[in-house]
Amino acid sequence: MSSRVAKLAAVYREHLSVPWQAGLAAIQRVIFAVYDKADELRLRANVGEFELATQQAGKQWLLLDLTNAFPEWMALQEYRDAYFESPEDMAGYQAGELTEFVADLTAKLKVRISDEAGPDTVVALLGVGALFGLARVSSVVEGIKESVQGRLLVFFPGEHHPENHTYRLLDARDGWNYLAVPLLAQE
């Protein structure tokens, strides 16, 4: 395990050592595990360390991998061939995201969460980098956060700027202000 990913796992383990406070607002139950985009494969190879830390803390673990969410959604679209010829014709593309895709994705995630997660579950989102240019991570988090009774852990390849709570996905797009709890591997 790379030292940065190991440090992030240690920070996560320490975060879980604090008893969960009841009655928190949904935004206060969201955790962003922020890591360098260059560590994506290392993090994926070691995601089991986060699951183990969760289980050792007496909590349940539900991993939701979004890596293939868009290709799976696109495969179900009746006019997919036409979209590939003229992507600008896709319905629902507004402000940097496909709103129909986001709505479908959040609906599917909410069903999984409601079926498989309880108040002692960490729901972990992996593969959010694959949403770049298609959906805003903030839209997905906003769409599902109320469904998560325990904690929502977002593995986030990018940056966090603490002075204004700004997150930047893949260090490449203008960030957004979000009040989730950031976990960072300290250098």
Rank of each mutant, 00 (worst) to 15 (best):
V137S: 02
F32G: 00
E85N: 13
F155A: 08
S138M: 06
V148F: 04
I113D: 02
V141C: 06
R151C: 04
V137L: 04
G58N: 10
A91W: 03
T121P: 02
L41S: 11
Y12W: 15
S86D: 12
Q186L: 13
Q77T: 07
W73C: 03
A95M: 10
T121M: 06
E85R: 12
R42I: 08
V137W: 00
P182V: 13
E78F: 12
F50T: 00
E78D: 09
S86Y: 11
S17Y: 06
V111A: 10
A25P: 08
D89S: 11
R136Y: 02
W20I: 14
V140P: 03
P119A: 09
S139Y: 05
V148A: 00
L153D: 01
H15G: 06
V128M: 00
E187R: 14
V140T: 13
G92D: 05
G48I: 06
N177T: 12
V140W: 06
A95F: 11
T121Y: 00
K37R: 15
L62I: 11
E187V: 15
K37F: 14
A9W: 00
A172F: 04
R80Q: 14
T67W: 00
A57D: 04
W73Q: 08
K110N: 13
A53I: 08
T54Q: 03
V11N: 01
R44V: 13
L43M: 10
L179A: 02
M1L: 14
M74H: 11
P182H: 13
F155Y: 12
A69Y: 04
I27Y: 07
E159T: 15
G175T: 07
Y178G: 02
A6L: 09
G143V: 02
A82L: 13
P182Y: 07
P182Q: 01
A117P: 00
P87C: 03
F32N: 07
S114M: 09
E116V: 07
D115T: 07
Y93G: 05
I31S: 01
E116Q: 15
N177H: 06
S139M: 09
L76Y: 01
E14K: 14
R4I: 09
V111F: 04
L24G: 07
K145Y: 02
A22C: 01
K145M: 14
I27E: 02
V123C: 05
E142G: 08
G118N: 14
M90H: 01
P162H: 06
E100Q: 07
V18D: 04
A10L: 12
A180Q: 06
S147A: 15
L41G: 06
A6P: 05
W61V: 09
D104Y: 11
